[in-house]
């Protein structure tokens, strides 16, 4: 399994060559991109461009929020899924969480 060159990413924060995560979802979003890339869903250059587009866009966001937006737009562009399907699925997760008493597993 080849690891992509993280240094090619715009504004990537690395300490000792490792990315720095502040919250679990950031690591999760990061890892999904690496897995998709390693399974051939997109090239590393395509990913760097998608991320760059977000970072250099008009919105001010934290780095991994840009990362998540870039991932959502690239999977839609590659037709792995659609923006509409993502919104629907997100609503389902919110609904499932709100209906789930604490102590029981959240399932869709």
């Amino acid at each position: 399994m080849t690891n992509p060159d993280l240094k090619t990413l715009p504004e990537m924060v690395l300490v000792d060559d490792e990315p720095v995560f502040n919250e679990p979802w950031e690591a999760q979003a990061f890892a999904m991109v690496i897995d998709l890339h390693q399974k051939g869903a997109f090239t590393w250059t395509e990913w760097a461009n998608a991320l760059s587009t977000q970072i250099h866009g008009s919105e001010t966001r934290d780095y991994y929020q840009h990362w998540l937006h870039a991932l959502e737009s690239l999977v839609a562009e590659k037709q792995l899924t659609s923006t509409e399907a993502l919104l629907n699925k997100k609503a389902q997760w919110h609904e499932a969480a709100s209906k789930t008493p604490h102590g029981e597993p959240i399932e869709l």
Binding site: W25, E72, S98, P101
Partner: peptide, 28 residues
């Protein structure tokens, strides 16, 4: 806490949505 239901932030729900859709289709 009996009246405490589960919470999910908007970002967590977006990440979960990506995860469940992409793994259902076998992309990850």
């Amino acid at each position: 806490d009996d009246d405490d239901h589960s919470h999910m932030t908007d970002i967590e729900a977006r990440v979960r949505a990506l995860e469940s859709l992409l793994s259902e289709k076998g992309y990850i």
